[in-house]
């Protein structure tokens, strides 16, 4: 009887050590869920529903998304092998513009949400990399599968790609960027990005 008690205490101690120490980055699903919940709360907040409060609502969503997405990593991956050829200045400008475009696209998308259900299907962690699989069920009886790809940086998990119904955002932009860079130049690409974000 006594032995069993000791085993229990040892297990409890082990659990405490494991539970508090190595999980510094938190579970990736938690991270995605936290932001998603925050955004869904903003979108369905009756106090922010008023069209006059659109700017305020968008700003709230923007803050939440900035906590989730690693714009620099997204830029780097979307540029692929062209990234290394750019100067620090150019990279900075690119991240700023591309980040703006992605942010806007994301906000436009979630702003139209109402009454969608989000189911968390599973997660995989492989060192600094993780994937979180999510299913969004809309009111119109459609299911959208979203795979969040995350990377740990500065003791936090950050999203660097979203794969929606098999379409990777990063891959989609990379195909476009490669095409534009092949037909014109980096300057041409930046010009297009500037026009796009100014729209």
């Amino acid at each position: 009887m006594r032995r069993k008690g000791w085993i229990g205490i040892t297990l409890l101690a082990l659990w405490a050590v494991c539970g508090f120490d190595p999980v510094w980055a938190g579970v990736p699903t938690e991270k995605v869920k936290e932001t998603t919940d925050k955004i869904l709360a903003i979108v369905s907040d009756p106090a922010l529903k008023d069209p006059a409060k659109e700017a305020q609502r968008r700003e709230c969503i923007r803050k939440a998304v900035d906590e989730l997405c690693d714009w620099e990593e997204m830029s780097r991956r979307s540029m692929g092998r062209h990234w290394a050829q750019r100067s620090e200045q150019e990279k900075k400008e690119f991240v700023r513009l591309f980040g703006q475009l992605l942010e806007r696209t994301y906000i436009d998308k979630v702003e139209s949400y109402s009454g969608e259900k989000v189911n968390y299907l599973g997660e995989r962690v492989d060192g600094d990399y993780a994937e979180v699989e999510v299913k969004i069920v809309t009111k119109k009886n459609t299911e959208i599968l979203v795979l969040y790809k995350l990377r740990a940086r500065d003791q936090k998990w950050w999203v660097y790609d979203m794969v929606i119904e098999g379409v990777s955002l990063v891959n989609n932009y990379r195909t476009q960027f490669t095409d534009i860079l092949a037909k014109s130049s980096f300057e041409g690409l930046m010009k297009k990005l500037r026009e796009k974000t100014a729209e």
């Binding site: 098999g166 379409v167 989609n172 195909t175 476009q176 095409d179 729209e199």
Partner: peptide
């Protein structure tokens, strides 16, 4: 609205989805 080249964006989205 999100695409720099909508033609390429649609082509790639179609193909990745397939």
């Amino acid at each position: 609205k999100a695409a720099l080249d909508p033609y390429v964006a649609l082509r790639d989205a179609y193909y990745q989805n397939r």
